[in-house]
């Protein structure tokens, strides 16, 4: 089911937790809401679910206006960060809960419920675990049970709040791969909230980057990483050096000399600005044209080597990352930097 959000605002007192959100999610898409804590991403998820209500704005689920509908009427699958499994019920009873609470006329018979539970247990790869209690499961297993419970009611949208937040790194990775495959197989329109950029970039079809209640950028993981549209996205996603420059005619200048970048993007009017450069977009040579700089540090980190340069006419350190096989330049030596891609934003 598709989702369209227009002008959604949520005020808490004088404080806007969400400020004019516009977003469309196509049917079957897997979308990540990514942002630091306090960016409003969880508030947005709760508004979509109906666990909270907007101050203004509209929300259409499958073409129907959902703002005035209760949680129950919206038929949403919601998976909570700490799973929120019912501790006193077995795994099977947890999964069946949403079916058993239906009004008699809509409730499947007990046999159908049992079959559905078995089917879902197989889907989450926990067959035979129906009789256990949540406390007898590992974190990753509980998360999958919570997912099965949400899916049992055949929701129109699946919403996941920090689905891997409470798991350790290894289980996180495994479950991430599993969820991607699971989504590809079942095709639910899914939104998940995360503060982990790796998770968002790895898993989602599209990423919504949020900050201070606003959407900064929406796009594919590639476009978010390769072409951040705002300084916030540049600083929040991946690593980058921020070089103070002067902008003239849309081009960056440092000490009166143009800093040449093969690809340059951003919205820059003339005046003072910042040039954002990612380490993997910096190459260096001992001679030739480019931005001249002095090597100030170098260290090996696993399979790669990181080299710090101080460009002439600035104190900012620009990092380059190369393969560890390549010989490290001597600290203090000079090099010409070639910038393949950079973002330029006015201050």
């Amino acid at each position: 089911m598709d989702l369209i959000i227009t002008g959604l605002t949520r005020q808490f007192g004088t404080n806007a937790a969400l400020d004019g959100i516009d977003l469309s999610v196509a049917s079957g898409e897997l979308v990540a809401l990514l942002g630091p804590s306090g960016s409003g991403k969880t508030t947005l998820l709760r508004l979509i679910a109906g666990l909270d209500f907007p101050t203004t704005g509209h929300l259409f689920i499958g073409g129907e206006d959902a703002v005035d509908k209760t949680v129950q009427e919206r038929n949403i699958g919601f998976v909570f960060q700490h799973y929120a499994l019912f501790k006193h019920l077995t795994v099977a009873d947890n999964i069946a809960y949403g079916l058993r609470v239906r009004p008699r006329a809509l409730r499947p018979d007990e046999k159908a419920i049992k079959d559905k539970v078995e089917e879902l247990l197989a889907l989450i790869q926990l067959p035979g675990h129906g009789g256990r209690y949540p406390s007898q499961l590992s974190g990753g297993q509980r998360q999958r049970v919570a997912l099965a419970r949400a899916l049992a009611v055949e929701p129109r949208l699946l919403l996941l709040d920090e689905p891997f937040g409470a798991l350790d790194a290894k289980v996180r990775k495994e479950l991430r791969v599993w969820l991607r495959e699971f989504h590809d197989r079942t095709g639910h329109t899914t939104l998940f909230v995360t503060h982990d950029q790796e998770e968002a970039l790895d898993l989602a079809d599209r990423v919504v980057v949020m900050s201070k209640g606003r959407i900064e950028q929406v796009g594919t993981p590639e476009s978010i990483y390769d072409a951040p549209q705002t300084p916030f996205v540049f600083e929040f996603i991946g690593e980058s050096a921020r070089l103070p420059v002067e902008i003239s005619g849309g081009k960056p200048y440092l000490g009166g000399q143009e800093v040449v970048a093969a690809t340059l993007y951003g919205q820059a009017r003339d005046g003072l600005g910042h040039l954002y450069v990612r380490p993997e977009n910096v190459a260096y040579r001992p001679d030739g044209d480019g931005l001249w700089a002095t090597v100030v540090s170098q260290h090996r980190s696993g399979s790669s080597r990181r080299i710090g340069f101080r460009a002439d006419h600035t104190d900012t350190i620009i990092e380059a990352v190369t393969s560890a096989d390549r010989d490290a330049p001597r600290v203090g030596s000079r090099a010409a930097l070639e910038i393949r891609s950079a973002g330029l934003f006015a201050v």
Partner: peptide, 10 residues
């Protein structure tokens, strides 16, 4: 837990 039950339609 109550919110979870709400989203499940209870």
């Amino acid at each position: 837990d109550e919110e979870a039950a709400l989203t499940l339609g209870a």
